[in-house]
Computed example of a mutant assay.
Amino acid sequence: MLLSKSCVYGLRASLYLASKKDGEFYSLKDISEELEISFHFLTKILQQLTADGLMESYKGPNGGVRLSQKGKDATLFDLVVAIDGPGLITQCALGLPGCGSQEPCPLHESWVETRGSIENMLKRTSLIGIAKEGKEKHFRLTAEGQFSWQ
Rank of each mutant, 00 (worst) to 15 (best):
P61S: 14
S6Q: 11
S38R: 05
G71P: 08
L11Y: 06
A143L: 09
L2C: 04
K5H: 05
E103P: 01
K20D: 01
L122V: 08
T50D: 12
D52E: 12
K135T: 09
Q69T: 15
Q48M: 09
P106F: 04
Q150P: 10
T142V: 10
S19C: 05
I45V: 15
K135R: 05
H108M: 01
S110R: 05
T43K: 07
D78A: 10
G116F: 06
G87K: 15
E119L: 13
Q47H: 06
M55N: 07
K20E: 04
G129K: 08
S101R: 08
L17Q: 03
K72C: 08
F147D: 10
G85F: 01
P61N: 07
S32G: 04
I31E: 01
F39G: 00
L42Y: 04
V81C: 03
E119K: 08
G87T: 15
E133G: 01
L46Y: 01
G64Q: 06
L3F: 02
L141E: 09
L107P: 01
Q91D: 15
A93C: 11
L94V: 15
K135P: 00
D84S: 13
C105E: 07
E56D: 09
I31W: 00
H108A: 03
S6C: 02
L42H: 07
I45H: 01
K123S: 00
D52S: 15
L76K: 00
L3I: 05
T50Q: 08
K72P: 04
F25I: 09
H108T: 02
F139V: 09
E113D: 08
P61F: 00
